[in-house]
Simulated scan of single mutants.
Amino acid sequence: MAHERPASALEPELVQRLLLSCREAKKSAYCPYSHFRVGAAILTRDGRIFSGCNVENICYPLGVCAERTAIQKAISEGHREFRAIAISSDMQDDFISPCGACRQVMREFGTNWSVYMTKPDGTYVVRTVLELLPVPFGSIGWRKIQ
């Protein structure tokens, strides 16, 4: 299985568990408008995995992405330190990438954790949160909230 960059931070078995969890989460997606299923799974610092799917609403801004669903589930259970998140969709030709809002939410919880962006064939690319969002929104002409 070819990958753009090796997963140096996680053991191969843990990567596979994370990838399986995001694919399973995708099955629960509620997407009657776009028909674009997305699943995500986030790995906490202590080894727990929380998954989430996208949930659409006819009022578009009220929908929530799979990545934010997974992060919010972990946060609501008391976890705030993450090692990695994996994202899956049904796109065949491109790796699924988090939207800007999800990148900003990820950045809220650190910059040095991994984002696994996948294809249905099992291939993936890995980036850090910092690589996906080098400058946080709060630092561009805004006073940082302490």
Score class of each variant (00 low, 15 high):
residue 123 T to Y: 09
residue 49 I to Y: 12
residue 42 I to H: 01
residue 100 G to P: 00
residue 80 R to Y: 13
residue 27 K to R: 06
residue 106 M to P: 10
residue 93 D to G: 07
residue 107 R to N: 06
residue 11 E to K: 14
residue 108 E to T: 13
residue 18 L to F: 02
residue 94 D to N: 15
residue 96 I to Q: 04
residue 37 R to H: 13
residue 49 I to K: 05
residue 100 G to T: 09
residue 69 T to P: 08
residue 48 R to V: 12
residue 62 L to A: 12
residue 119 K to T: 01
residue 113 W to A: 04
residue 6 P to Y: 00
residue 47 G to K: 06
residue 55 V to N: 10
residue 36 F to N: 08
residue 100 G to C: 08
residue 80 R to G: 15
residue 72 Q to D: 13
residue 25 A to R: 01
residue 76 S to W: 04
residue 66 A to C: 08
residue 77 E to M: 13
residue 53 C to V: 05
residue 74 A to M: 05
residue 47 G to W: 02
residue 55 V to T: 11
residue 69 T to N: 06
residue 65 C to R: 14
residue 108 E to V: 02
residue 43 L to Q: 00
residue 46 D to N: 12
residue 19 L to T: 05
residue 89 S to P: 08
residue 63 G to T: 04
residue 48 R to F: 14
residue 125 V to C: 10
residue 19 L to A: 05
residue 76 S to V: 06
residue 112 N to A: 12
residue 83 R to Q: 13
residue 82 F to A: 03
residue 68 R to C: 11
residue 118 T to H: 07
residue 50 F to G: 08
residue 113 W to Q: 11
residue 83 R to S: 11
residue 75 I to R: 12
residue 113 W to S: 12
residue 58 I to V: 12
residue 90 D to A: 06
residue 54 N to A: 13
residue 30 Y to K: 00
residue 25 A to N: 07
residue 10 L to T: 04
residue 123 T to M: 01
residue 85 I to D: 04
residue 15 V to S: 02
residue 59 C to I: 14
residue 86 A to E: 03
residue 107 R to L: 10
residue 7 A to P: 02
residue 34 S to T: 14
residue 113 W to Y: 15
residue 39 G to Y: 06
residue 117 M to V: 03
residue 8 S to I: 13
residue 49 I to S: 10
residue 109 F to E: 10
residue 60 Y to N: 08
residue 61 P to A: 03
residue 100 G to V: 05
residue 28 S to F: 14
residue 112 N to Q: 12
residue 13 E to T: 05
residue 111 T to M: 08
residue 110 G to P: 08
residue 4 E to H: 14
residue 120 P to R: 07
residue 78 G to H: 11
residue 85 I to Y: 04
residue 54 N to I: 00
residue 111 T to Y: 00
residue 59 C to A: 12
residue 47 G to R: 12
residue 87 I to F: 08
residue 119 K to A: 01
residue 62 L to Q: 15
residue 17 R to V: 03
residue 111 T to C: 06
residue 79 H to T: 04
residue 45 R to V: 13
residue 33 Y to Q: 07
residue 35 H to V: 05
residue 23 R to P: 02
residue 118 T to S: 10
residue 122 G to I: 09
residue 124 Y to K: 06
residue 24 E to W: 03
residue 112 N to V: 07
residue 116 Y to K: 03
residue 75 I to G: 00
residue 93 D to N: 07
residue 36 F to Y: 15
residue 16 Q to G: 02
residue 29 A to D: 01
residue 114 S to D: 15
residue 115 V to P: 02
residue 106 M to H: 08
residue 89 S to Q: 09
residue 12 P to Y: 03
residue 86 A to T: 08
residue 114 S to I: 09
residue 5 R to C: 03
residue 55 V to R: 15
residue 27 K to P: 03
residue 72 Q to E: 13
residue 34 S to D: 02
